[in-house]
């Protein structure tokens, strides 16, 4: 479990990093390293060069506008979790990040890195989907923004082009009458979840659900928007019957095959349970926020 030989560079700017990446097609970007380093040590990956972006000052900031939180690619998960501005702007982030591995991992791991890694069981991609966020990317051809819905293609695969790097993650500020919740079930505290559900519901003055955004992790080949479940909720009252219908729709989104921890049947059951529980919390929070 020792990595193979590789070159190592530490660019000071995004431009330098992108140029270095363009110069060597077998190079990879290194951010927090919480996924990349193990794959090197297992010799699953054999890159010729690591481009360590941790010295790029421009990637280390969190900016919060009236509408959006912008998180630089080198901001560590723990920093986001502890940022009171982020907590005020969108408390979903802290709730999700609390479920990401352990403190020591979050001390180094980055949100952008987790999203770029695109593990189907990881929490952050599901959070990005439910939030309707996006990522800023830079590549040899310049910069562009990719909406969350267009980002995740398969387990460990995104729509980033070769040579592109994520420079920032953008997440909308939570609307005043929107309730949020994230729940997952993992075998051990901090493990990847067998299933996780992220929900944002917006209520109008009469308690009607004007918008519902749901996503899941751990149940398919990517983090997944639960569109059918959303349809069961949008436009109607968020009552027990609607929640049960949404949970059933969510359950039917499970495509992950049996694995050693969960059969498909058990995972469907988990998704049903988690969806009901997540929606119940999100609804309560939406009501509390609306009442304020």
């Amino acid at each position: 479990m020792k990595p193979p030989l590789f070159d190592y560079v530490t660019p000071e700017s995004v431009e330098e990093a992108v140029a270095a990446r363009a110069a060597d097609e077998d190079s990879v970007f290194l951010a927090g390293g919480q996924s990349l380093i193990p794959t090197l040590n297992f010799r699953i990956a054999n890159p010729t060069m690591l481009i360590d972006i941790s010295r790029i000052a421009a990637l280390k900031g969190i900016e919060i506008s009236d509408t959006e939180i912008t998180i630089g690619a080198m901001v560590r998960q723990r920093q986001i979790e502890r940022d009171s501005g982020v907590e005020r702007a969108n408390p979903l982030l802290r709730e999700v990040l609390h479920n990401v591995a352990h403190t020591v991992v979050r001390n180094r791991g980055t949100l952008a890195g987790s999203i770029a890694h695109a593990d189907a069981a990881a929490e952050s991609p599901a959070m990005l989907l439910a939030s309707g966020g996006s990522v800023e990317v830079r590549g040899p051809g310049g910069g562009r923004r990719i909406e969350a819905d267009d980002l995740f293609k398969f387990h460990l695969t995104t729509s980033l082009e070769p040579g592109e790097m994520i420079t920032a993650v953008r997440i909308p500020v939570l609307a005043p009458s929107t309730g949020w919740a994230f729940k997952e079930f993992a075998r051990r505290r901090g493990d990847y979840a067998l299933a996780g559900i992220c929900a944002l519901v917006t209520l109008d003055d009469s308690g009607r659900c004007t918008s519902a955004r749901l996503s899941a992790c751990g149940i398919a080949s990517t983090a997944l928007r639960l569109v059918k479940a959303e349809q069961e909720l949008s436009g109607g009252m968020l009552d027990e019957a609607a929640i049960v219908r949404a949970a059933k729709a969510a359950r039917d989104a499970v495509t992950a095959a049996d694995d050693s921890q969960a059969s498909t049947a058990y995972r469907r059951h988990l998704v049903d349970t988690l969806t009901r529980r997540t929606l119940a919390v999100a609804k309560t929070r939406a009501e509390e926020r609306s009442a304020r």
Binding site: R187, L194, Q261, A262, S263, A265, Y266, R268, H269
Partner: peptide, 12 residues
């Protein structure tokens, strides 16, 4: 395991 408890409860 939880999956075994699920099965012992009769499954889906």
């Amino acid at each position: 395991t939880p999956d075994m408890i699920f099965t012992a409860l009769g499954g889906e």
